[in-house]
């Protein structure tokens, strides 16, 4: 019984932590855009994710961390990859995303139809623990 209550409490804690992370990302992106440090406005959101990239801690139907670039023009693949590389090279961030139930990193723009998807687990440096 206590285990069940604890599970529910954990679920709500994770939920608020996920919302906080996305909110912080969006606030920082907005600040950078307003201060003219960033040429494009980035927006983070939670998406369904890729079912093939799931791991043991994936959240059901909410495993995707999507970064949308409000660029006004279709971004080329190199630009999307460079944004993704910043996230994927930050192992602390990748581990935090995985621990909060994300399994997929998605980057796309607001004008084109293309995007890139990455399996977060491959970039976490975790070996043999989950998967």
């Amino acid at each position: 019984m206590w285990n069940f209550i604890s599970n529910i409490q954990d679920w709500f804690n994770d939920f608020s932590e996920r919302r906080r992370l996305v909110r912080n990302f969006n606030l920082s992106a907005r600040d950078a855009f307003v201060a003219k440090l960033a040429p494009t406005l980035l927006e983070g959101s939670i998406s369904m994710g890729e079912s093939a990239y799931k791991h043991a801690f994936s959240k059901f139907l909410a495993g995707g961390f999507r970064i949308k670039a409000l660029s006004g023009r279709p971004l080329n693949r190199q630009e999307m990859v460079s944004i993704a590389q910043v996230v994927l090279n930050n192992q602390e961030l990748v581990r935090k995303l995985i621990s909060l139930g994300w399994d997929t990193l998605e980057i796309h723009d607001n004008a084109g139809y293309n995007g890139v998807k990455y399996k977060l687990y491959d970039h976490s440096g975790i070996k043999g623990m989950i998967g």
Binding site: S28, A32, L42, K96, M129
Partner: peptide, 27 residues
């Protein structure tokens, strides 16, 4: 034991301003 690892990762604070700098200014 796995939960402890995960909890450690959950507790780490990420500075999003640094990430924005990495995305926009680093290249």
């Amino acid at each position: 034991s796995l939960d402890k690892e995960i909890l450690k990762s959950k507790a780490t604070s990420i500075n999003m301003s640094d990430i924005m700098n990495d995305i926009h200014l680093a290249p």
